[in-house]
Design a protein around this nucleic acid. Structure first.
Lengths: 198, 198
DNA sequence: AACTAGACAGAATCTCTAATAGTGTCAAGG
DNA sequence: CCTTGACACTATTAGAGATTCTGTCTAGTT
């Protein structure tokens, strides 16, 4: 298989996944029809099957792509703020809040939402718990790099705070993503920077 | 109506609600039958209707009772720890975590859980949002009293942290109630006690 | 070699109907 | 004030039948 063929195939997969994403957003996982996906992607139904194998497999590929994109986005945002952890946290949280706001699928994954109309999580539970764990690990590593002077325990506490508070504000928002991100970063800064007053 | 009659009626209401609570726990709101409630409470079906009016009304009375009991419990725990806010927070959080663990109904109310088997929230949405607001207000007042030297903003931040982190740990627990409560109290102490390092 | 198009069996979902069970109300009686 | 039994009306359930989808195969196209 030549590299050219590979890139063709990759773009085909992407077109199909794009189509699936849009249709899932419209009608939910249950309302998704392989025929519609194929039609919107401009390929035959058979091609979808040879490429993904089954509807469930296509669903898994879809969430994996979204999850990977999200994780890449987080990584990029964090890397873009060098040693200033507070700015990095603010940007990362805001990015997450915005993503969850306009990506129902990722919102469902992040909040581990089950049932409802997007029953897609019920089947595709694989790769859904790892998301928060991965994000937590990334943030932890970033924090260790940006704030080497903070002790491990405080850093752990701070990272847990960021993740939990962010998810909490996705589930129950009270302000704009900017304001919320700012607030969470402020909280976390305090958690990380205060030595234990025993 | 004499006071004696009133107390009879109150105990009757309580017996019916106790029966309803048990049956909801077993079969969910949808599986609850007025006839069963009456039977288990040892009263006639008609009495349930004259007392509560309808099944939905009984449901509302049930959640109201549970919510009130929970709120009273919180109040009691907080008051029992006088000026030591850290101890109060620890005890309050632990109390909440334990309550949520062995009271499905309150867990559903606290986490604003919709759908699922306990569809009782779908109808009884009244009084469910106020719960967290009331608890937040109570904690805020308690904090203002116990930590007068902390500025308003920091206190607000700390209170928000307690509430959101507690709910988060109900939804996704990682440790025992004691350990979690201890951890949250530690975090919150830091948030409240650190002046802004701008 | 990679895709399309059409056909097809089996499974899942929808629809409609009949029957069953439950809610809410009444009146008679203890 | 509570119980009991009866009742109309509504909601839920069950099942049969039709419909729609999935997943696969094969023949044909570019």
């Amino acid at each position: 298989m030549t590299r050219y063929t590979e890139s063709i195939r990759a773009s085909l997969r992407d077109r199909v996944l794009d189509a699936a994403y849009g249709l899932v957003a419209d009608a939910g996982w249950g309302g998704l029809r392989m025929a519609h996906v194929a039609e919107r992607a401009g390929v035959s139904r058979q091609t979808c099957y040879t490429e993904f194998g089954s509807k469930d497999a296509l669903g898994q590929a879809l969430v994996m792509r979204e999850v990977d994109r999200f994780l890449d986005g987080i990584r990029e945002v964090l890397d873009g703020h060098g040693p200033d952890l507070r700015a990095g946290v603010t940007a990362g949280v805001e990015f997450t809040l915005r993503t969850a706001a306009d990506n129902e699928l990722l919102k469902a994954v992040i909040t581990s939402q089950r049932g409802g109309d997007g029953e897609l999580m019920t089947h595709l539970t694989t790769r859904s718990e790892p998301l928060l764990d991965t994000a937590t690990a990334m943030l932890g590593a970033y924090a260790a790099h940006a704030w080497p002077e903070v002790d491990d325990y405080s850093r752990e506490l701070a990272v847990e705070c960021v993740v939990r508070l962010t998810v909490s504000n996705i589930v129950q928002p009270v302000a704009s993503p900017e304001a919320t991100a700012e607030r969470i970063a402020r909280i976390v800064t305090r958690v990380a920077l205060l030595a234990e007053p025993e």
